[in-house]
Design a binder for these strands. Sequence first.
DNA 1: CGCGTGACGCCCA
DNA 2: GTGGGCGCCACGC
Length: 101
Amino acid sequence: MDEETHELVREIVSGVPAGTVATYGDVAALAGLPNPRMVGQVLREDGGDIPWHRIIRADGVPAAHLRSEQLARLRAEGVLAEGQRISLTRYRWNPEGPGAG
DNA sequence: CGCGTGACGCCCA
DNA sequence: GTGGGCGCCACGC
């Protein structure tokens, strides 16, 4: 992965405010990536200096290997999860901002 | 270049 | 709600 893309993705993910969540597809779209898989690819190399736990799948379910971690961290931010799923329509991050309309 | 795999997303039955 | 298939790009062998 190019450092540029790597940096960009980190910026976007890091730009996700607490109490909200974003999907890989959203991050990928904002980063200009052709597929959401690239987002995960980057996060993998990143490390943990970013709120990766705010990135979940489009169905509102976090990664299986992070399920517990994600849910736990998000919980601390006020992002409740019904069982294992999170209400995107309720916590989905809006990159356009509430002042866009 | 081909094969297998992956922190994904959409479609169909 | 569940199970199976396809598309997409990148990494490692």
